[in-house]
Computed example of a mutant assay.
Amino acid sequence: MSSDSITNAADEAKAAKKAANSAVDHGERSFTEAMTAAEKTLAEATRSAEKVFREGLEALRSQTRVYTDNAGERVDEAQKYIVERVKERPVTAALTGLGVGLLLGLLLSSRDR
């Protein structure tokens, strides 16, 4: 082989090495950019999900307050109703309470057998 052929081969090898290094650098930059974009997208998705979750939780809390207030009013009404009926007919209320207690006692005692 001539020295020109060896020089050409060496020059081509250097060019190939430079091209390979350039390709690796480009690949690293592309990978880094892709990772950065993915991290950004994931962070945005996390923030969106967090916002939706908070809004849903707040809506649930407000609905629960309405139901709780309504249930409290119903309990108060029931309590007033029972107190009025007991005051109107105390003997009937006492006998009714005794009967309900006896019935529950019988049901619970038959359960144990």
Rank of each mutant, 00 (worst) to 15 (best):
V86Q: 01
A71K: 10
P90M: 03
S2I: 04
Y81E: 12
V91S: 06
L107A: 10
R85H: 10
D112I: 04
R85L: 15
N8E: 14
G72V: 01
A9W: 06
G97C: 11
I6R: 04
T41L: 14
G97L: 04
S110W: 09
I82D: 01
L106M: 09
L106P: 01
D25N: 12
V52Y: 01
R61A: 11
D112R: 05
T64I: 08
S2A: 07
R85I: 10
R113S: 05
K17G: 03
A43G: 03
L108P: 00
K18W: 02
R85N: 11
A23N: 09
E39C: 05
A59H: 05
L60R: 09
V66L: 08
A37P: 00
K51R: 04
G101W: 01
S30F: 06
R29W: 13
A15G: 10
H26T: 14
A38N: 02
E12A: 15
T92R: 02
R54C: 02
F31H: 12
A19D: 15
V100K: 12
L42F: 04
R74D: 09
I6T: 03
A19W: 04
Y67G: 00
L102N: 05
K40W: 01
T92P: 00
L98A: 12
T92I: 07
M1N: 07
L42C: 05
R113L: 04
D4F: 03
D76E: 15
L95V: 10
N70M: 11
G56W: 00
T36N: 08
T64N: 08
L107Y: 10
R89L: 13
T46K: 14
L98T: 06
T68N: 02
V52S: 11
L102Q: 13
A49S: 12
P90Y: 01
E33T: 11
G97E: 07
S2G: 10
L60D: 06
K51I: 02
K18A: 15
T46A: 11
K14M: 09
G105F: 15
N70Y: 08
A78Y: 10
A71R: 07
S3W: 08
R113K: 02
L60M: 05
R47M: 11
R111I: 04
L98V: 06
R85G: 02
Q63S: 10
D69R: 12
V100W: 01
K80F: 02
Q79I: 04
T96C: 08
D25R: 06
L107M: 13
Y67V: 07
R65T: 13
G99Q: 09
V100R: 06
R54H: 07
S109Y: 14
K40F: 03
A9Y: 07
E39R: 12
E39V: 08
G72Y: 00
S48L: 14
G105N: 08
A45P: 01
R113A: 01
A78M: 11
